[in-house]
Simulated assay, not measured.
Amino acid sequence: MDVLSEMISKMDFEFFGSGQHGMSVEGMRKNLGNDHFLFLDVRTNEEVSHVSFPFAKHIPLNELPNRLGELPKDKFVVAFCSSVFRGAIAYTYLLSQGYEEVKALTVNSEDMTKMFKPGPLYKS
C-alpha cells in the first residue's frame, strides 16, 4: 500500500470526529504570531491579488509539488484556501510528503476575514 492510500485508510470516524485534521478560526487566532506555526495560503494568484493575508506564505496548490522545499519540516503548517477544499488537499499532500505537524483550517477565507475586524483584533 502506498503512503497516500495508507493515510486515507486511517481517516475514519474517530479521526474526523476528534478534529485532529483541522484548526478552527479561533485556533488560528491563538497561533498567529507564534513562530512555530506557518500558515500556508494555497489559493490561486488571481485570488490573492484581490484579497491577501500578509501573515501567510502563499503557494498555489498547483505549484506545491514543485515548491515543497520552501516549507520547513520543523514548523507546524496550517493550509487554507477560500473554501476549505484545497486546504484539505494540501493537508493530505503534506502528510504524504513526510510533514508531521500539519492541519487544514476548517473555515473559509470569508470567515477568516471576520477575525480582522476591530473587535476581534482588539481581543487578540
Rank of each mutant, 00 (worst) to 15 (best):
M28A: 15
H58M: 09
E100Q: 15
K114I: 12
E101A: 14
S52W: 06
A90C: 13
N66Y: 14
R67N: 15
Y122F: 08
S96P: 03
R29G: 00
N108V: 04
K117W: 00
I59T: 01
L71I: 13
R29V: 13
D12V: 05
M28N: 07
K10D: 07
H58W: 12
L64G: 10
K75E: 10
R43K: 11
I8F: 03
E70L: 11
K103W: 13
T113P: 01
F80V: 04
L95H: 14
I8V: 05
I59R: 07
A90D: 06
H36G: 02
G98K: 13
V107K: 02
K30V: 01
L68S: 01
L40K: 03
D35H: 13
M28P: 07
F85Y: 12
G87E: 01
E70P: 05
F37R: 11
K117I: 01
P60N: 06
L94S: 09
G27V: 12
N31C: 01
S49E: 10
E63N: 12
N66E: 13
E100M: 15
G87P: 02
K123C: 08
E14M: 06
R86Q: 08
H50Y: 14
M7A: 05
D12E: 10
R86Y: 03
E110L: 14
I8G: 01
D35Y: 06
E46I: 03
R43V: 07
S82G: 13
A104M: 13
H21D: 10
S109E: 10
G69D: 14
S9E: 15
G33A: 07
H58K: 08
G22D: 09
Q97V: 09
S96K: 08
L105S: 09
T44Y: 04
V25W: 05
E46F: 04
S18M: 01
K75N: 02
N108E: 07
S124L: 03
P120Y: 04
E63P: 05
N31R: 09
Q97D: 09
K73T: 15
D74R: 07
M11A: 10
R86D: 00
K57H: 14
G17Q: 07
R29Y: 08
L71R: 08
N31W: 05
V48L: 02
R67P: 00
D2W: 03
L71S: 05
G69Y: 07
D74F: 11
F16L: 14
K30T: 07
T113G: 03
M11L: 12
A56Q: 09
E14D: 15
F80D: 03
L40N: 02
L38C: 06
N34P: 00
Y93L: 14
S9H: 11
E46C: 04
F37G: 11
H36L: 00
L121K: 00
V3W: 00
L71K: 02
S124G: 06
E47M: 02
V77W: 05
S18W: 06
V78C: 03
F116M: 12
E47N: 01
D41L: 11
